[in-house]
Design a binder for these strands. Structure first.
Lengths: 95, 95
DNA sequence: GCAGAATTTTGATATTTGTCTAAATATCTA
DNA sequence: TAGATATTTAGACAAATATCAAAATTCTGC
């Protein structure tokens, strides 16, 4: 996992909102965009950040691009956080 | 919990390393600083960010200032993340 | 009260980030 | 192939961030 990329990706509220929308299932870029007022260009920038962090996957379907969550990275991230939060860190920590 | 402050605070690797050091127990600003090469001024800036996010507490002990983790906010943060990561979000989500 | 130590604050600077508009790319349909 | 739609890329700009040096603050011990 690209830990630093993931942490940075999660630091923006728009990106967290995107992830939240994707919890309901895969969506096209346009469908995701309907919930936001920013331009599609800005949205695309956020998608790129999420993709670089491996938090989302993409698949082209005709003229659409479908985004979906990458649960694996989510789980890795949760594990890292628990390591970070656990008092008296044990071996294997890597924050 | 000031969610956005917490996410931003966690986005910086130096700050995550500070939190990690504090897992071992409370430390003075100087003791924490020994692990880093940046100036104490920069370190102090990072402390301010962590404090604003309520991730750490401070207590003056003579001429020293002792930093310690605020586990409560840690736990709240973990809970928010699980909400964010859980597929098919349930009511009560607030990411 | 003064010198010294620990820490923070201030002011400056360089880098990163989020946003926009305009242009480019990819795909569909007629 | 041409026009329409969906999305990304390029280029520009303002705001936020990380860092530093220097000055200010708070405390200790003489």
């Amino acid at each position: 996992m690209k830990q630093q990329e993931v942490f940075k990706a999660m630091a923006d509220p728009t990106r967290r909102a995107i992830l939240k929308r994707l919890q309901e299932g895969a969506l096209t870029a346009g469908e995701i965009g309907q919930a936001f007022t920013i331009t599609s260009a800005s949205l695309s920038h956020h998608f790129a950040v999420l993709k670089r962090a491996d938090l989302v996957r993409t698949e082209r379907r005709g003229q659409f691009i479908v985004y979906s969550l990458n649960s694996t990275v989510f789980e890795d991230f949760a594990r890292v956080l628990f390591d970070l939060f656990r008092h008296r860190g044990s071996p294997g920590d890597n924050a």
